[in-house]
Design a protein around this nucleic acid. Structure first.
Length: 286
DNA sequence: AACCAGGACACAA
DNA sequence: TTGTGTCATGGT
């Protein structure tokens, strides 16, 4: 039998917590002096990297921590993933620059809604919009006395009932009707997010793209960051720039050709390669 | 102060 | 199939 605890320690090799939580796949983590503060589902949690381990702190005692190890993917053998990468220079440099970068396994609705808000927005702005959304329409969660209040990510049913004007007040602009309509489609069961995990990559993508405000890029983000399809390869402006400048520096390539290249070049874990290139481009190359 | 940001969509050719 | 204008908002 197991005892409920406020803290847990997970031994991990090659886990760069800062790169993982700060690389633009999730938008609610805040790095402070005492660690990374965030919310997983309805559980506020603080994370710390300490000598080959991740330490987790919860306000309420937890009987089991599977919800967190699943989210963080601490059980993943990163070396096995990296071993499937093609041995090219740019990807090698990207991996060397941020080894330990991981992909999270996020809750599908939060991930979907967040990325609907992400289009042509800088990551700092996405974070601000998501924070406002949670603050205004999420549920208040219990936290330690004295610490600032924490909110859950609002459910699809909740957001479906929010007026477009109130959504726009969260600074999301033209994305407001997209979020509202997608929330309604999910809340009504018109699209079953839970059923997507049992589908093929192509099948799940086709289902997501039906939602208003969800095109191929956002669909691939959700497929990669929430459902764990390792071959999903989101192509955004940073990835286009990375492919153009790092792989084809001589001749100008169209976006379509770069996309075609990515579909065959990076292998079964292309999504991981994508995240390394994305983070490498944003932090090292500029 | 222009330029651009983890795009999608309607419409053109 | 591939190219262009439009849609808010604010960081750099």
């Amino acid at each position: 039998m197991t005892e409920a605890t406020h803290t847990a320690v997970f031994p991990v090799r090659d886990y760069d917590l800062a790169a993982t939580l700060g690389s633009g796949q999730a938008f609610r983590w805040e790095g402070r002096e005492d660690g990374w503060h965030g919310v997983v589902g309805s559980r506020p949690v603080r994370l710390l990297a300490e000598g080959g381990c991740l330490k987790a702190f919860s306000h309420t005692p937890q009987i089991e921590w599977g919800w967190l190890t699943e989210y963080l993917q601490t059980g993943l053998n990163l070396g096995a993933v990296l071993a499937t990468f093609p041995a090219d220079g740019p990807l090698g440099r990207a991996v060397a620059a941020c080894r330990g970068l991981r992909l999270l396994r996020q809750e599908p609705w939060e991930c979907l809604a967040s990325f609907i808000l992400s289009s042509t927005k800088q990551i700092v702005q996405i974070r601000q919009i998501v924070a406002l959304l949670c603050e205004r329409f999420g549920d208040s969660l219990a936290v330690d006395r004295g610490s600032s209040p924490v909110y859950s990510f609002p459910s699809a049913a909740r957001l479906a009932g929010v007026s477009e004007a109130d959504l726009r007040a969260c600074k999301m602009g033209f994305r407001a009707p997209y979020l509202r309509e997608t929330a309604a489609a999910v809340a009504s069961g018109q699209v079953d997010l839970q059923a997507l995990s049992g589908r093929s990559l192509e099948g799940a993508r086709a289902e997501l793209v039906r939602l208003p405000g969800v095109g191929p890029k956002i669909a691939d983000c959700v497929l990669l960051f929430a459902y764990g399809f390792p071959a999903a390869f989101p192509v955004d402006v940073w990835i286009l720039k990375a492919l153009q400048e790092l792989y084809f520096p001589k001749r100008r390539m169209s976006a379509a050709r770069l996309r075609r290249f990515s579909e065959t070049h990076f292998g079964p874990n292309a999504g991981y390669a994508q995240q390394y290139l994305f983070h490498y481009m944003r932090t090292q190359i500029r």
